[in-house]
Nucleic acid binder design. Structure first.
Lengths: 214, 214, 214, 214
DNA sequence: GATGAATGAGTGTTCATTCAT
DNA sequence: CATGAATGAACACTCATTCAT
């Protein structure tokens, strides 16, 4: 069954200018419609409220068509976070182009994440409910971000911007920063406003810690 | 309907000297049984798998008895996190008795939290799935912890252990620390081992931040 | 079990002026409260919505107390229409005191029925839903009214006011008049207004029939 | 949801010449089966005893299939009386073909109604319990019959067979006749025998009224 | 006789999944 | 491949009735 993540990266490809879509192109379009429908519904109402009937109705296809693209409902859930998660990291990567290193870059990353959430508020539910409804995808997502963080830290250490640490510690730090990000996002999920005080507090913590040396 | 949190705190009451339990005492016991059963099931299998039939079977009462104590399933969910959350904070408070202030105390708090999770692994799911299944209880729990953190920081600032900050920043910091705690817990939820490297990384972050001053 | 109709007629008896009620008086009061509560609930929401819990709550007694007065829910239903039906016929009988005979009296009866319904709108549901929920009581009520009608017709015939008819025909006529009454009541159950055109039409029908002789 | 009455009239459609039923034809057949099953059960045991499980078992379909055709149980109830009511009026209309006008026609109508009930004894419960379980359908049914009556009276008046009356009075008369019909039906619902005395009494009432002019 | 907690059978409704067309 | 009707297991919730206190 064609539910692997691999297939996702080959998905939409800005359609050429032909009018008639080939059979495979139509299939890709249907898959895309299903995923976008699922993203919209999960983002707004959560995984639990995301029924096959809802998704197919939103996607404009027949109920049974769903099962031509996904083994079952869980397969959709397992693939949804990778699908939207990639867009999120792409956005952040793009936002960081040209930004310096060390603290400045980390704060920019934090800010970019907040900005993404403001424009894509549904991403919050897709991500954080995934821990319950698509735990494997959630773990993979976290693992992917953690590894990205570790690489970034390695570069920052090499550049002398960051304190020396071993890989295990770096992974722990990455987890801490991801958690920080998540909870700050949670706090402003209702308002939708980027919380400047939170960003300032985050920056201060990154820069000097919380407690004075004795 | 008797599902308010208030009633919970009045729950067990070391029984008076009668052998036979009075009607009210038996009712309190039944409520306790239902809550403990729910905590066990949610902790192990999550809210979604927590059916009324499961809970009542585990509690040793009839199916319908559930509805003498809770308006509906959601009412149970709404009350479960307060019920177990109070035990968690009590445990941490007790663990901190006699511990000094500032960094040392914060690290001890982090360690105590990890220790509580190791002994009560179910708490993790009860807490973190609550964001999905009992959002109000979740928000209230976070708010309670945040306020506790802000008070602790205020004391640390007064003692000169902690950098000066306004209330808004303190709340942001509290959120960051709660998030850090959550994600570290998540990372070792499967192994159940206290992650000493994570504690060391946490301590280092609290002490000096992550990035060197230029 | 004490649910027979006989007991009803011995019910409340304007209480004497004693302060302390004797045991039996208290029991009679409770029975009365249960019946009035049931009448209020059935009248407003129908038999189907009339649960034991509702009735006892409205009557201000414990749930289990119900079963000291009625064998089961059906026993209450079986006794409710006799209870309120007697009040209705008493009212109509009183309204007819001093009214002449023949057509005039029948029209006054019709009018009195409409008047009773306006003041006791709940009676409509208690009566007409009884066909479904308390069929025996309903049949008995209809039989009682039918017999009353037959006696009245006999008197009218004896007085020369009414065409001659045998008992079977009189019973049929009684049914027709009861049905007419019911449907007219139904038509104005929402408005609550006495429908003068309907009364006029009824009178005309009683007086000359509907179709001209050829 | 396809529960509108409109769809009902389009139901059976003498099947085209295919042997295999098309998908839509099978769906129509399923809907028919559900309605006939419901009519049988409601007619025999009443709405209250009509469970989804009963209906689907009788119709020979799976429990869940019911919800492909009706939003919920109430939607079935709301559509049942229109479904059978149309058959009843068709029968009566057919019975009146060639019958004269005025009194003769009205008596024939009454007789036809009794005849329909004898052959379709379930109709009685479907109709008269509808006041409780499907009040909107009941009101609509009554309104439809009332309008039919008013039209018939208008014709009779034009033909000089019937006393002059305004529309409001005609509606009242229609209600009276419907009520009469209902109560007479009720009186012989158990025996199933057409009550010739009742028909004679009805005719006499229509012809000359009940009370002699003074 | 009053109380109200406990009981459990019964029912409506949902929805993922299948499969004939 | 697309369709959408059929399926049936599951589940939440109700409520009349019982009975120990």
């Amino acid at each position: 069954m064609p539910t692997d993540t691999d297939r996702l990266s080959a998905l939409p490809r800005p359609q050429p200018r032909k009018k008639k879509l080939s059979r495979e192109e139509k299939a890709q379009l249907t898959l895309r419609n299903l995923l976008e429908a699922a993203a919209a519904i999960v983002g707004e109402h959560g995984y639990a409220a995301t029924t096959i009937a809802n998704v197919t109705r939103e996607a404009g296809v027949a109920h049974g068509t769903f099962y031509n693209y996904f083994e079952d409902r869980q397969a959709l859930f397992d693939v949804l976070l990778p699908y939207v998660g990639e867009r999120m990291t792409d956005y952040i990567t793009a936002s960081l182009a040209g930004v310096g290193g060390g603290l400045e870059r980390e704060v920019a990353r934090f800010r970019a994440y907040c900005g993404y959430l403001r424009v894509n508020p549904g991403f919050y539910r897709i991500l954080y409910e995934a821990e319950v409804f698509a735990p494997k995808a959630f773990d993979a997502h976290i693992e992917r971000l953690t590894e990205g963080y570790v690489r970034a830290f390695r570069r920052a250490i090499a550049a002398g911007d960051c304190y020396e640490m071993g890989d295990e510690e770096l992974r722990a730090i990455a987890g801490i920063l991801l958690g920080a990000r998540a909870y700050v996002a949670m706090q402003f999920k209702d308002t939708g406003v980027i919380p400047e005080t939170a960003i300032a507090a985050y920056e201060s913590l990154m820069k000097q810690g919380l407690f004075k040396a004795k």
